[in-house]
């Protein structure tokens, strides 16, 4: 498979704090990769650097042969890397349909965006098609404020899929979703994504989901990658079990006691 994202010697520091160090990652076409690590391990910092939200302190990020390190999120988004967020980033007053139509309109450039109405039959049809892929077309006219967390997550991902990216980065797609709904949500997400054959890199804390959906796992610990390889191998890795899975399980037990 052809590599599409090549990250080499990537570093990010916030003053004296090192958030990411010596990150070297390659993502190939159509690959399904999970990123794991306990809170503060540098997973989201890594995704934020790849998508332009954070500027790396040093290192290279190449996407389809082009250097994208430090570029604006919109440029990276237009080049074919799209993302969803840990907390769905939406516009509270707009309906789901309007979110999608705005996402489609954002792909166009020129005066058309100044004068033609957002609402049109063609725009609605295209928007409903993508919403259908993610199983949320039935909510098309609902406002975000009235939606369940799972639907918000799906909308966040559906928006990212509008431009048919080559690489989709999902930041904890199942966080905030009830345990019994997590697999159903992931099924829907993967069903929607499969239509486009995009490579997917997702950050996840639930190891069952990681085992089921990822072919490869990248494990972060204290800003560094401590394991990178096939899912079974990484999840069996001694350091991963000690530093990541152990911590995550411990955190889950603490959280369940608080509940």
């Amino acid at each position: 498979m052809k590599p599409i994202l090549e990250v080499s010697d990537l570093n990010k520091s916030f003053g004296a704090v090192t958030a990411a160090a010596d990150i070297n990652v390659t993502i190939h076409e159509n690959e399904m990769v999970a990123v794991i690590g306990s809170n503060g391990a540098g997973k989201t910092t890594f995704v934020n650097m790849v998508t332009g939200y954070l500027k790396p302190t040093s290192g290279r990020i190449q996407f389809c042969g082009k250097d994208i390190a430090g570029r604006a999120p919109r440029e990276i988004s237009r080049s074919g890397i799209c993302r969803s967020f840990q907390v769905a980033q939406l516009f509270p007053e707009m309906t789901i349909l309007e979110h999608m139509m705005l996402a489609f309109a954002a792909l166009q450039v020129g005066l058309k965006n100044y004068f033609y109405p957002l609402h049109s039959q063609a725009a609605e049809t295209r928007a409903l098609e993508v919403l259908g892929d993610f199983g949320i077309a039935g909510h098309a006219n609902a406002r975000v404020g009235a939606l369940a967390q799972g639907v918000r997550k799906l909308l966040d991902i559906a928006i990212a899929m509008v431009s048919r990216p080559q690489l989709l980065l999902l930041d904890e797609p199942t966080s905030g979703v009830a345990i019994e709904e997590k697999f159903a949500l992931m099924e829907t997400v993967m069903g929607g994504v499969r239509q486009t054959k995009a490579a997917v890199m997702f950050i996840e804390h639930d190891m069952e989901i990681v085992s089921q959906y990822a072919r490869r796992v990248i494990a972060f610990y204290e800003g560094r990658i401590i394991a990178n390889g096939p899912t079974k191998e990484v999840l069996a890795h001694a350091q991963v079990r000690e530093f990541i899975i152990g911590e995550i399980q411990e955190a889950a037990i603490v959280a369940s006691k608080h509940d």
């Binding site: 999120p73 919109r74 237009r78 799209c82 939406l90 100044y114 957002l118 609402h119 431009s163």
Partner: peptide, 25 residues
């Protein structure tokens, strides 16, 4: 016409969530 156009909606969107607008491209 302008406020009903995509940019009109984008105006409202930037008020609520500039980051998401940036990621829309």
């Amino acid at each position: 016409r302008y406020i009903r156009s995509p940019l009109g909606y984008a105006s409202m969107a930037v008020r609520d969530n500039e980051i998401r607008v940036e990621y829309l491209g």
